[in-house]
Amino acid sequence: MASAPSLPLFYNGLEPLSSEVHANYKVRPQDTAPFLVGQHAIPVTVDEFPLVQRFMPIVFSVGPEAIPLALMGLNEGVNVFVDEDGKLNETSFYVPAYVRRYPYMLARLRPEAEELSLCFDPTSPTIGAFDEGEALFEGNQPSQLTQNILQFAESFEQAGARTQNFMKELQEMDLLMDGEVSIQPDGAAQPFVYRGFQMINEEKLVDMRGDQLRKMSQSGMLPLLYAHLFSLSLMRDLFARQVQQGKQPQPQFQPAQ
């Protein structure tokens, strides 16, 4: 099992799925996601920008290895879209693929390995040697469920590769800048200022040469940038939700990463 410090968000361990070791394992449905409670920023891929921007602000993490993030809350430890049990409080909502992938993921079992193996988090309550649920294997062959899980994990990896290329282009064009959002609630003496994230520098974008903008439009990159920029208006909606839910933020620096 991989050590916890090297694991990505949500995962407490990784174990390769095996028809020998996990022949009697089943998956049982769960309508809650406890691992989402208190998670305010979720990684997203560029493929998801058009859908995500309808529900959540899209920002970029700080640092040289920046990634796109969907904000489910403005303050660390706050998620306004799930209750204390991890159940969605929205009937119509786009759940990021990163969330839907859990507890599975493709990973290299050894650093030198070329192939990725389908693994799962053994601490997840949704997978195990249960009496009820949908089987992961039929004999020594993966069931249709397992094939679907593998296909989704592969699609996610491909979207992740496209996202890495997208971020590389952004950095090469120097279009990212430090973000800041100031929200002045009624009756508050001072505004709440949020920093610790990156956003597209809209002035630089507008001032780019026509041939560069044309190339970005033809590649599909330009609509993605504007999906991000349009989504930033939802920052105030998140703030209002936090206040409504009694998760009053503190007027101090809050990193969105």
Score class of each variant (00 low, 15 high):
residue 25 Y to P: 14
residue 80 V to Y: 04
residue 82 V to T: 05
residue 50 P to T: 06
residue 22 H to K: 09
residue 61 S to Q: 07
residue 95 V to T: 14
residue 39 Q to L: 04
residue 6 S to G: 05
residue 67 I to G: 00
residue 9 L to N: 12
residue 86 G to K: 07
residue 17 L to Y: 09
residue 4 A to Y: 02
residue 19 S to K: 14
residue 62 V to Y: 02
residue 77 G to R: 09
residue 54 R to M: 01
residue 26 K to H: 09
residue 87 K to F: 01
residue 11 Y to I: 07
residue 52 V to L: 00
residue 92 S to W: 09
residue 85 D to T: 15
residue 38 G to F: 07
residue 34 P to A: 09
residue 30 Q to M: 14
residue 93 F to W: 15
residue 16 P to Q: 12
residue 14 L to K: 13
residue 47 D to M: 08
residue 42 I to E: 06
residue 38 G to C: 08
residue 87 K to V: 03
residue 36 L to N: 05
residue 3 S to W: 00
residue 20 E to N: 10
residue 15 E to V: 13
residue 31 D to C: 01
residue 41 A to F: 02
residue 41 A to C: 08
residue 44 V to H: 05
residue 91 T to L: 14
residue 78 V to Y: 12
residue 61 S to G: 10
residue 59 V to A: 07
residue 12 N to F: 06
residue 55 F to E: 02
residue 46 V to S: 04
residue 39 Q to H: 06
residue 95 V to R: 15
residue 56 M to R: 03
residue 56 M to G: 02
residue 35 F to H: 14
residue 14 L to E: 06
residue 3 S to C: 03
residue 90 E to L: 10
residue 59 V to K: 08
residue 94 Y to L: 05
residue 11 Y to V: 08
residue 52 V to Y: 04
residue 66 A to C: 09
residue 67 I to W: 06
residue 44 V to Q: 01
residue 23 A to T: 07
residue 87 K to R: 15
residue 10 F to H: 08
residue 93 F to M: 13
residue 58 I to L: 05
residue 39 Q to N: 11
residue 35 F to A: 09
residue 75 N to V: 06
residue 56 M to F: 13
residue 4 A to K: 02
residue 24 N to C: 12
residue 33 A to S: 09
residue 43 P to Q: 00
residue 95 V to K: 15
residue 52 V to G: 00
residue 44 V to S: 00
residue 12 N to T: 15
residue 16 P to F: 00
residue 87 K to Q: 11
residue 35 F to V: 13
residue 3 S to G: 11
residue 34 P to W: 05
residue 90 E to G: 02
residue 20 E to R: 14
residue 29 P to C: 03
residue 57 P to K: 04
residue 80 V to Q: 10
residue 63 G to H: 04
residue 65 E to D: 10
residue 59 V to Y: 12
residue 35 F to E: 14
residue 36 L to T: 05
residue 60 F to V: 02
residue 41 A to S: 15
residue 37 V to E: 04
residue 69 L to P: 12
residue 46 V to K: 05
residue 45 T to D: 00
residue 2 A to P: 13
